[in-house]
């Protein structure tokens, strides 16, 4: 996305959110169009905005709060999600999270098929000699997630790769997350393989 487009988006966003925010004192209703505008009409992800459909509601809710508190601080988070959540109350965050979690997710299928087998091996077994933890232990056998641990299956290769790189670069997601330690020993070939494998998981 170039600068003009994002400036234009930000302006539109303010226009969309501001009237709603002032309409009701305290908790306001946020139309999902404010979100699907970037995340795709059925929330399957679009360009840099990840899929929200089928994601664990408790995970979506903690991330929305983390954007609002400016704790989740990667460049695209700052650029897009800080303003998108600025006027989002806790109840609105919970409602949006519940809504998006009920939409059936579709797999992005945009990985490199030649790397999928290697990715699956790392996902299931880790690489104990290199201190790489088995993702399976937390994200589940089918990468479906549980409670506030996210579903990874079918997210886009681009998004998965960026997330795994950003923990290694020192960006934050939520307080007390195990992911910085998980990501630190991952080499770029391993990140590529994991992101490829996961993009195909249904």
């Amino acid at each position: 996305m170039n600068l003009t487009r994002s400036a234009w988006m930000a302006a539109l966003l303010t226009a969309l959110i501001a009237p709603v925010a002032t309409a009701v004192a305290g908790e306001q209703i946020v139309p999902v169009q404010n979100c699907t505008w970037c995340h795709g009409t059925s929330a399957q992800g679009y360009a840099m905005a990840p899929r929200l459909a089928g994601q664990r509601p408790a995970y979506l809710e903690t991330q929305l709060n983390s954007f609002r508190e400016h704790f989740r601080d990667a460049p695209l988070s700052k650029q897009y999600m800080w303003s998108a959540t600025a006027a989002l109350g806790p109840q609105a965050a919970r409602d949006l999270a519940a809504y998006f979690s009920t939409i059936p997710p579709r797999a992005a299928n945009d990985g490199n098929t030649n790397l999928a087998t290697m990715g699956r091996t790392i996902y299931m077994n880790g690489i104990p000699d290199a201190n790489i933890a088995a993702c399976y232990a937390c994200h589940g056998p089918n990468a479906e997630g549980i409670r506030d641990i996210p579903r990874l299956g079918g997210l886009s290769r681009f998004y998965l790769k960026a997330r795994l790189e950003q923990w290694g670069q020192g960006y934050h997601s939520v307080p007390g997350s195990p992911m910085p330690l998980v990501a630190r020993p991952l080499a770029s070939a391993e990140i590529e393989a994991l992101a490829s494998y996961l993009s195909f998981v249904k």
Binding site: P178, L181, V182
Partner: peptide
Amino acid sequence: KLDYCKTC
């Protein structure tokens, strides 16, 4: 190695 154990 300790960091690795503590991730889980």
